[in-house]
Measured scan of single mutants.
Amino acid sequence: MATKAVCVLKGDGPVQGIINFEQKESNGPVKVWGSIKGLTEGLHGFHVHEFGDNTAGCTSAGPHFNPLSRKHGGPKDEERHVGDLGNVTADKDGVADVSIEDSVISLSGDHCIIGRTLVVHEKADDLGKGGNEESTKTGNAGSRLACGVIGIAQ
């Protein structure tokens, strides 16, 4: 089992970053940390998408990683996509320092995120509470600013 993974985020604009993942036990939580720069100040949706395909930019990554066919939600919700990591918060300089621990994603097994795409979005994720159909699919997080395929790390 891989215990570490990394993702280099890039987009068409100024947004870029490096996100690290570490899972010490196969059924334990995954620590997610790193930094994203070039964002507007505020909240930005942060999700693992189904495919590791960036051939047409971030759009070819498909929908959120959702092997259990659930509705979109927040990272602490029972009803959520596996890939729903909530929001990252950018400061006035456009930098989001990421520090998350998640017990639904994994670096092995059915919820493995390796080979899938991590995406940072234009807007805040409403965590499935926006009151419309799009909220239950995407959290109304808007366009995909930057993305990268999650790969095994040393």
Rank of each mutant, 00 (worst) to 15 (best):
L39H: 04
A96V: 05
V30C: 05
K4M: 05
T40K: 14
S108T: 12
G131N: 15
Q16I: 14
A96L: 05
E78N: 11
L118D: 02
A61S: 09
K123F: 14
D84E: 02
P29N: 15
V104A: 08
I19V: 12
G11I: 09
A124N: 14
G34S: 04
I150D: 02
K92W: 09
A96I: 07
D125E: 02
S103T: 06
N140W: 04
A141F: 00
G45N: 00
N132S: 14
D102I: 11
T117L: 02
L85A: 05
L43Q: 11
S26D: 15
K37A: 10
A2G: 14
T59W: 04
E101A: 07
G83E: 03
D53A: 03
W33A: 10
P63I: 07
S106E: 15
D12M: 11
K4L: 08
R70V: 04
K31M: 13
L107N: 06
K24M: 09
H121V: 01
I36K: 00
S69F: 15
F65I: 03
Q16M: 13
L85Q: 05
D97M: 13
S99L: 08
V98G: 07
G28L: 01
G45D: 02
V48R: 02
V48F: 14
H47R: 02
G109W: 08
I19Y: 03
G13C: 09
S106L: 08
A141D: 02
A146E: 04
N54W: 10
K137L: 12
K92A: 15
R116G: 00
E101T: 07
K31E: 13
H44Q: 05
N140C: 12
S69K: 15
S103K: 06
E79Y: 06
G42V: 07
I150T: 05
L145S: 09
D126W: 01
L39P: 04
K4T: 07
H44Y: 04
T59M: 05
T3G: 08
K123L: 11
N27K: 15
L118E: 01
A5T: 09
L145R: 07
F46H: 10
V98I: 03
V15G: 13
D126Y: 00
P14K: 05
R70W: 08
I152M: 07
A2M: 09
G45E: 01
E78S: 10
P75D: 06
G139L: 00
H44D: 03
H72D: 00
V149T: 06
T3Y: 14
I36Q: 02
G131V: 08
G115V: 01
V88S: 11
S143E: 03
S99T: 13
